[in-house]
Amino acid sequence: MKVLPVEEVFTLLNETAELLKEELNVTYLEALAETGENVFQGAILQEELSELTTKRLEKSYESFHISKFEKEDLRKGFQLAILKGMKENVQPNHQMTPDSIGLLMGYLVNKFIDQSSFSLLDPAVGTGNLITTVMNAQSGKMVEATGVEIDDLLIKLAYVNANWQEHPIRFYNQDSLEPLFINEVDVVVSDLPVGYYPNDLRAQDYELKADEGHAYAHHLFIEQSFKHVKEGGFLFLLIPNGLFESPQAPKLHDFLKKYAIIQGLLHLPLNLFKNEQAAKSIFILQKKGEAVKPPKESLLVNLPSLSKADDVDRVLTKVSNWIRENKGS
């Protein structure tokens, strides 16, 4: 039976990560980053391995060539290995955007952005799965990307992930809400981290700071995204459905009124999430500017279950028609 490319990628990563995990006494995700880097560099970089483990790794690596795989197969194989590692070692900040959402965001970016080359930022890049999914969906376009992530391990996985797929992404390992020394971009995509931001002193520099107690991190991420996107640039943000129901929501509402044009809101099907409280939507915003005109009306969509292909096609046709009619309106 023929092995599928995604399965081949996962098997190589999984078997070699397990070997390194055992030998180096590290977590699966740490071992995954190590083996991914070995494959990319074409060498075994860990000097402290036993001769037996080194031989076993060499045998696995010698028949595996990144260049023979499609980018999406590499990304999906890598994603499966990361998901396995996250199940083994559950941490609240170690969560991945579901594939179906990433693919949908990639589709939307491709439809809204008609430049042949553009710059992209994900201020909460995690393992790089969302940003590379979006980049893979931009057929024939040149995309230069930047990712920011505070977690050392996640950004190492993102770096290896991007190298495997040959994506030009600059990574910054820092708190995304500290000053970012990056150029303004055309597009922001992000699965916003939801919760309170503990650094009250830093939050004071934001318009969306809390009047009392901690500010919401997801509010500050929205403001930080607006600081780093060009006039007329787009933001595709995965937001909690209750974004405008919190005590701090009026301030966010005023902020968006001041800086943003709301292009659209796509409610994702509830069956994608554990429960109704965890449900999210894709919020499409555009930064105001002199030549930027709002659409005749915002795009509001309730997406059907993504397993219902015909219903999804109908909705995507509606989205496509809306974009065509509202471009430059």
Rank of each mutant, 00 (worst) to 15 (best):
Met1Asp: 11
Lys2Cys: 10
Pro5Asp: 02
Thr11Trp: 12
Glu15Ser: 15
Leu19Val: 04
Leu20Asn: 03
Tyr28Ile: 05
Glu30Phe: 06
Glu34Val: 03
Glu34Ala: 04
Asn38His: 04
Val39Phe: 13
Gly42Leu: 10
Leu45Ile: 12
Leu45Phe: 11
Ser50Arg: 03
Ser50His: 05
Thr54Gly: 10
Thr54Pro: 05
Leu57Ser: 09
Glu58Ile: 07
Lys59His: 14
Lys59Gly: 08
Glu62Ile: 10
Phe64Arg: 09
Ile66Asp: 06
Ile66Met: 05
Phe69Trp: 04
Glu70Val: 04
Glu70Pro: 00
Glu72Gln: 08
Gly77Phe: 07
Leu80Arg: 12
Ile82Trp: 04
Ile82Phe: 06
Leu83Trp: 02
Pro92Arg: 13
Asn93Val: 02
Gln95Phe: 13
Thr97Cys: 08
Asp99Tyr: 01
Asp99Lys: 05
Ser100Thr: 11
Met105Tyr: 00
Tyr107Phe: 08
Leu121Pro: 03
Asp122Glu: 08
Ala124Leu: 11
Gly128Glu: 02
Leu130Trp: 08
Ile131Pro: 06
Thr132Met: 10
Thr133Met: 12
Thr133Ile: 00
Ala137Leu: 00
Lys141Phe: 04
Lys141Tyr: 01
Met142Asp: 14
Asp151Cys: 01
Asp152Lys: 13
Ala158Asp: 06
Gln165Phe: 01
Ile169His: 00
Pro179Asp: 13
Leu180His: 02
Val187Ala: 13
Val188Arg: 04
Val194Asn: 00
Gly195Asn: 07
Tyr196Thr: 14
Tyr196His: 11
Tyr196Ala: 12
Tyr196Ser: 12
Asp200Gly: 00
Ala203Tyr: 05
Tyr206Thr: 04
Tyr206Lys: 02
Leu208Glu: 01
Gly213Met: 01
His218Val: 11
His219Ser: 07
His219Trp: 09
Leu220Arg: 03
Phe221Ile: 08
Ile222Asn: 02
Ile222Trp: 05
Glu223Ala: 08
Glu223Cys: 09
Gln224Asp: 06
Ser225Cys: 07
Gly232His: 07
Leu243Cys: 06
Phe244Glu: 09
Asp254Gly: 13
Lys257Leu: 14
Gly264Leu: 05
Leu268Pro: 04
Leu272Gly: 03
Glu276Leu: 07
Ala291Ile: 14
Lys293Cys: 09
Lys293Thr: 13
Pro295Ile: 07
Lys296Thr: 10
Ser298Glu: 05
Leu299Gln: 08
Leu300Phe: 14
Asn302Val: 03
Asn302Lys: 11
Ser305Tyr: 01
Leu306Ile: 10
Lys308Ile: 01
Asp311Asn: 06
Val312Pro: 00
Arg314His: 13
Thr317Tyr: 12
Ser320Ala: 11
Arg324Val: 15
Lys327Ala: 14
Ser329Pro: 10
